[in-house]
Design a protein around this nucleic acid. Structure first.
Lengths: 255, 255
DNA sequence: CGATTCCTTGAAGGTTGTCAACGTTGGTGG
DNA sequence: CCACCAACGTTGACAACCTTCAAGGAATCG
């Protein structure tokens, strides 16, 4: 079973050269190192599963990095329902949304026991924003978050249940792989089906049926919080909405 | 009919004191002024409706502000369908997503004739990111974009067709009002029903039916790109998913 | 080993998508 | 100025997907 802990001296490789503007790459990479340093030199804090890392409408005191464990950000609806806006695998930085705000708009909840490292937003943070390198890196992280949200919006707007579930499972796999938390084709995803449903905008019942179908189709197998990918290419295609493209020859423009 | 032009010496009031962390407010407000200055001292460029402000997979040369006109950011699917990820009313800053990337992931298309002011990303921009105030302001803008995307994700995940359409119409109204482009209860929204559908994740046909229903219910009237709000409070409630809350007394936790 | 939470499955109904056709509008050129 | 054309809007019938409701089984935790 894959470990949930972040290796001590490895940074989260969130900055990626191939898509970064060349003018800024060096500075951003430096900022990543510096921020990693700042996190590493801070004390760790442990919280149990279900604990709130960030409380709604409360001031947020720190920018956190998940040294160990998973969390998610959630927003409630007037009728008591919830939508999960973001899932934080180990290694994620939590609190970017609120770093310039005086209160949190959503809750962040630990999905497993977590260990966090924290940078105080009133003390250490202002200096970090004054440095070009760290300011650039934080902007990079905000941009990454934006890109992921765009994927999420696009998926919810266009994909059906099966494809949305595949997107969730594929994205989590890709992220864990990039962070070197997983090598093979299986990984640990500590979410209940209700939480998956709140993330992909479906009901628990339908998520359950969808997982059953994906299992029968030999695409992915999800059981007891373990995801086993059987057909990575098929999973990827479904996740990108290319499961069954009607006509191969670009029929976009002219009839 | 409301004008589409941005008054010459007014800045887009994107920074809002009540939600901003006090430590940073002054700097961010300064950054806003400085960036506005940079935009204002740049030459304007005019493009016609349908023109691409940003081409997909192309390097993006500038950060733009819409001095006049509307635009949208769109992503295509393998089957030729499209999802509109963001709508830019006049006064918006376009290109934040790509300012640290070497190529654009999506297209940005002019919805009306537009006039843009541009800051060159290779020349003037690096200095702006080196200044604490402008770097903070750009981070603020990225955060604003993030917040809007969160709303969008939440709406697509939880709201039904009627509520999603209300959200789109209400959000556009609120933004135009904050930018002082509109005073009464009606405004110009230069989108086709197909574009609205691509934004809220529905089909044209269903958007059409939904608009008809909202018209009959005397909530909003959308005709010829003019939105006339009949029941602002009702529109807001629907947009926030509180159109008809089952039980008033917080039934969230205990059964 | 009780009790709660989570998973699983069936049946029925509603919301939204698909297909198809027609009406309306605005622009363009004869 | 009118005729045409293309894009956009509108409506109906039907089908598909997803939700709701309900209930029983499995797993986990005190």
């Amino acid at each position: 079973m894959p470990s949930l802990a972040l290796p001590d001296e490895r940074l989260v490789p969130d900055i990626s050269r191939p898509i970064c503007r060349a003018t800024f790459y060096e500075d951003i990479a430096l900022g990543e190192k510096e921020l990693g340093q700042a996190f590493r030199s801070s004390a760790s804090q442990v919280q149990q599963a279900g604990a709130a890392l960030v409380g709604i409408n409360r001031p947020v005191a720190a920018l956190s990095r998940l040294r160990r464990g998973w969390a998610y950000r959630v927003r409630g609806w007037p009728n008591g329902a919830q939508t999960i806006l973001e899932i934080y695998p180990p290694g994620s930085i939590v609190g970017l949304e609120t770093m310039l705000l005086n209160r949190a708009i959503d809750e962040v909840i630990a999905l497993t026991p977590v260990t966090t490292q924290r940078i105080d937003l009133e003390k250490a943070f202002p200096d970090l924003m004054a440095r070009r390198s760290t300011a650039l890196y934080l902007s990079w992280l905000l941009g990454e978050a934006n890109r992921h949200k765009d994927r999420h919006v696009a998926a919810l707007a266009h994909l059906d249940a099966r494809e949305r579930v595949c997107m969730m499972l594929y994205d989590a796999y890709e992220l864990l792989r990039r962070r070197e938390f997983v090598r093979g084709l299986s990984y640990n995803l500590p979410m209940t089906q209700q939480q998956m449903a709140d993330y992909v905008g479906l009901t628990v019942v339908h998520v359950n049926r969808t997982l059953k179908r994906l299992r029968e189709e030999r695409i992915v197998l999800v059981d007891k919080h373990v995801v086993m990918i059987r057909d990575l290419e098929g999973l990827r295609k479904l996740a990108e909405g290319a499961g069954s493209v009607a006509t191969a020859e670009t029929p976009e423009h002219s009839p």
